[in-house]
């Protein structure tokens, strides 16, 4: 178990928190830009960072250990590989540092390359690879280290859409099989559900909620936590002086007339409508606040019209 105690991710902000990451689980750390995700990774890896706090692995402090000595491997958001070394040498790098025998090195490298489907590229230089392949090499090198903690700092952000989806599926299978602590940072709520056994929500260096992703989704502790897991933003309204919120996917269009008692009704003044054929987003004003709703398929909506919408009572989250 990896635990961070009294961590302050962003200096000058008194948002000190503690958290534990279990072995054999993937914990997705979700937060917007500048929420301290990268600082958290750098703190755990022992790299130069402004974050402060204690890091323990199985009750042993890592504080005094240099990045070399820590049982931690890392994949950066940018594709970082040694440009003068071949793919084989890149993946072999952590093994060579540990003075593994030649047979052991070539066996692990070939195994990993096969798993990540870069085995035909072993003798190329990183500059001769596409972005997706470069990141596969970086992931293979991190896995080759067979460290007890694996940090993935937004590993797929710089990839284009299709490559990203392909690698997402493979990565999930690769990571599941290990007994390591895997920390996967992201700003995309979908990653929480595709990769995460556990979810840790960060906002401006503050831990706002943690737990299994679906549990956090169903019972968000604050509007910020709810908004972090919503795409696009959540819709806020007040009932009896209390702040309530609805996710954009939980709002329905109503044909005519009031609906049953299990639903709440609203009127929306449509300000914008966008669609890609598969999904549609309607933006508008409801009770003075800006709302957005998401629906499958295309909708018969015009800008300027007033829509009657409703949502099931059980989907309303009250704070």
């Amino acid at each position: 178990m990896l635990s961070v105690n009294n961590v302050c991710l962003i200096p000058n902000e008194d948002n000190v928190f503690s958290h534990s990451f279990a072995r054999g689980e993937i914990c997705v750390v979700l937060g917007a830009n500048q929420s301290g995700k990268t600082n958290l990774c750098r703190l755990i890896a022992g790299l130069n960072t402004r974050a402060r706090g204690a890091v323990h692995l199985d009750d042993k402090s890592l504080e005094k250990l240099s990045p070399r000595a820590r049982p931690v491997s890392m994949v950066y958001q940018a594709f970082v590989n040694y440009p003068n070394l071949t793919v084989f040498e890149n993946i072999a790098s952590p093994l060579i540092a540990r003075k593994a025998s030649n047979e052991a090195v070539s066996k692990s490298v070939t195994d990993l390359a096969e798993k990540l489907r870069i085995d035909p590229l072993l003798h190329r230089l990183p500059s001769e690879l596409s972005g997706g392949q470069q990141q596969r090499v970086a992931i293979a090198r991190a896995l080759a280290q067979d460290a007890q903690v694996l940090l993935l700092d937004e590993p797929l952000v710089n990839l284009d859409f299709k490559l990203r989806e392909a690698l997402e599926v493979e990565l999930r299978e690769l990571l599941r099989a290990s007994n390591t602590v895997v920390i996967y940072t992201s700003s995309d709520p979908r990653d929480a559900f595709t990769h995460g056994d556990q979810l840790l929500l960060l906002d401006k260096g503050k831990k706002i909620q943690a737990g299994p992703p679906l549990q956090v989704y169903e019972r968000p502790s604050s509007p910020t936590a709810m908004a972090l897991l919503a795409d696009p933003d959540i819709n806020r309204f007040y009932r009896d002086g209390k702040l309530c919120a609805l996710r954009p996917e939980h709002i329905e269009l109503v044909g005519a007339g009031p609906t049953s008692g299990n639903a709440v009704d609203f009127h929306m003044q449509v300000t914008a409508y966008e669609t890609n054929g598969d999904e549609s987003f309607v933006h508008g004003l409801v009770e003075g606040a800006e709302w957005v709703l998401r629906q499958r398929g295309m909708l018969p909506v015009n800008v300027g019209q007033t829509l009657q919408i409703n949502a099931a009572l059980r989907d309303v989250v009250q704070f």
């Binding site: 790299l47 240099s66 990045p67 070399r68 491997s73 970082v80 040694y82 790098s93 540092a97």
Partner: peptide, 25 residues
């Protein structure tokens, strides 16, 4: 990029190894 220096540290290489084997080449 400084990430390269850090990568070598995380991989477990000494500074001298990184400097001679990667940085200078």
């Amino acid at each position: 990029p400084t990430e390269l220096d850090e990568m070598a540290q995380i991989d477990g290489h000494s500074f001298l190894y990184f400097f001679m084997r990667v940085f200078l080449p």
